[in-house]
């Protein structure tokens, strides 16, 4: 099958008029763009609100988990400070406990 175009049809198509440039059409597209921006903004606000509410909902259980772990860790750390070089061990222990608290809070939530 060749790619030759029927010359008569091609001429008819070439003679068909194009719509005139229309500023009202441009304005309609502009309004659509403005509406799109408003919807994007509304979507972003809704997303931020959802993230904020999630954080608030999570803050309680996380704080509770951290408090529980701290309550268990504090006496151990106090005893570590009493032995020579125990400060380093205490800091390492505190770091370990912080990570544990984070993991624990995720598990509980």
């Amino acid at each position: 099958m060749t790619e030759e175009r029927d010359p008569h049809l091609a001429r008819l198509f070439a003679e068909a008029p194009e719509p005139q440039a229309d500023e009202a059409f441009v304005d309609a597209v502009r309004m659509g763009m403005a509406r799109g921006r408003r919807m994007d903004l509304a979507g972003a606000l809704a997303m931020s609100a959802a993230v904020g509410l999630t954080c608030v909902a999570l803050a309680g259980p996380v704080a509770q988990a951290v408090g529980q772990v701290a309550g268990q860790v504090a006496p151990v750390m106090a005893e570590l400070f009493d032995v020579p070089g125990g400060e380093i061990l205490a800091v390492a222990f505190a770091g370990l406990m912080a990570v544990s608290a984070m993991v624990l809070s995720r598990v509980r939530v």
């Binding site: 005139q20 059409f25 441009v26």
Partner: peptide
């Protein structure tokens, strides 16, 4: 761009 391309 809309102004230029709308006709076609």
């Amino acid at each position: 761009l809309v102004r230029r391309r709308q006709g076609s």
